[in-house]
Design a protein around this nucleic acid. Structure first.
Lengths: 199, 199
DNA sequence: TGTACATCAGTGAACGCGCGTTCACTGATGTAC
DNA sequence: TGTACATCAGTGAACGCGCGTTCACTGATGTAC
């Protein structure tokens, strides 16, 4: 599925190939299928080979998680920079949720407890920053009375993260289509609330 | 920690003892420590014994998860029924988050993918219903112009669930105390927004 | 250009481990008469 | 009250499995002279 260079095996850049293989396994199966042995097999390499590139499994998973956060940032980016700040804000949140739904296992890995970084650090910072920026742009244009605060930023992030998580874990009723509408409604309602507040 | 009857081992109600042991293990260690073998050992019973009460591990975990949801509902309940509807609403959300922080492994188990129920079903329904009720009471008294909707209910739930999850996974900066203040601020800000909207 | 040698990615076999689950069994409990 | 018997919770040994990791090794690559 990727435009990655075709792996020059038997000697090549195994590191990237392993991360790529992990992403594919996560996409096709659950995280329980993600073992070093299967990864090595998928990359066409012996069991010990990964240890030339990663100290242990945890380090490899962290690389996979980092790749995931890069993709997430891509999914959140607004392809149309001329869109309104409201649309850009909405699509950032919707992109976040859509990414989680499209990559459930990867998303769970990215936010798994074993890989938890120092609080506030870690690659999720990137996604969070993007979010803050869009929120601040949105507020400046549509609700200038509200000044961005950590509480407000946390609120916005929690909202999409919770929505993503609940959908992922099958905790909300409805079909996939209804879920999609729900995400649209919830994000729009949140933006509306901000616009109306202190109006 | 519990007022459970002291387990009359060697013959007694092993089923409850196993669930209790699981809750204790989850409290003290991570979910990776939660194996049927350790559980049997903790209950002072042989390895095969649990199979007299549960078809397999999954069924036991579901019982543990159900017990967790019962506790969660308890943590969300407002001990003071004479409190204002705003306070009752706020404390419901804060109780949800506080429960997650106090029982991280249990909370994760309760919302784990392997135990995912049919969408919208499952024991989380109880917690969700409690939430809906408090939200609706709050709106009636403080923002009568807003009529409760699935989108709004989902928004409120997503907010606290996301907040809990992000805190659990160490994704928000700050100390435990600062986290606690943050939860208070975020929930209050959300209630404020509802009150101000359409005012 | 050619040789000697260090580096290092990858091999393949083996390690020890903890796991869920099974199965023939034992022995206590409770019921029928 | 006493005996015969069915039920069923719990035993203990064993099964097969997949896992992360190690280690002595091989063989290709790249560098020094």
């Amino acid at each position: 599925m990727s435009e990655q260079e075709r792996e020059p095996y038997h000697h090549g850049n195994l590191r990237a190939a392993l991360v790529e293989a992990a992403l594919e396994i996560l996409e096709r199966s659950g995280p329980s299928e993600l073992s070093l042995r299967k990864l090595a097999a998928a990359a066409g390499v012996s069991r010990g080979a990964p240890y030339a590139h990663f100290r242990d499994k945890r380090e490899l998973l962290r690389a996979v998680s980092d790749a995931g956060f890069a993709r997430l940032a891509g999914a959140m980016a607004e392809p149309d920079p001329s869109a309104s700040s409201r649309d850009r804000f909405l699509r950032t949140g919707r992109g976040y949720v859509a990414f989680a739904i499209r990559n459930p296992s990867l998303f769970r890995l990215m936010f798994s407890a074993e890989l938890a970084p120092a609080p506030g650090a870690g690659k999720n910072r990137l996604a969070f920053e993007l979010f803050r920026e869009r929120l601040s742009d949105f507020l400046r244009e549509n609700a200038p009375a509200i000044i961005p605060s950590p509480a407000l930023e946390t609120m916005a992030w929690s909202l999409v993260h919770g929505l993503a998580t609940l959908l992922l874990d099958n905790r909300l009723p409805g079909t996939a289509q209804e879920h999609s509408s729900l995400v649209d409604e919830v994000t729009a309602a949140f933006a509306d609330q901000l616009e109306f507040t202190h109006r």
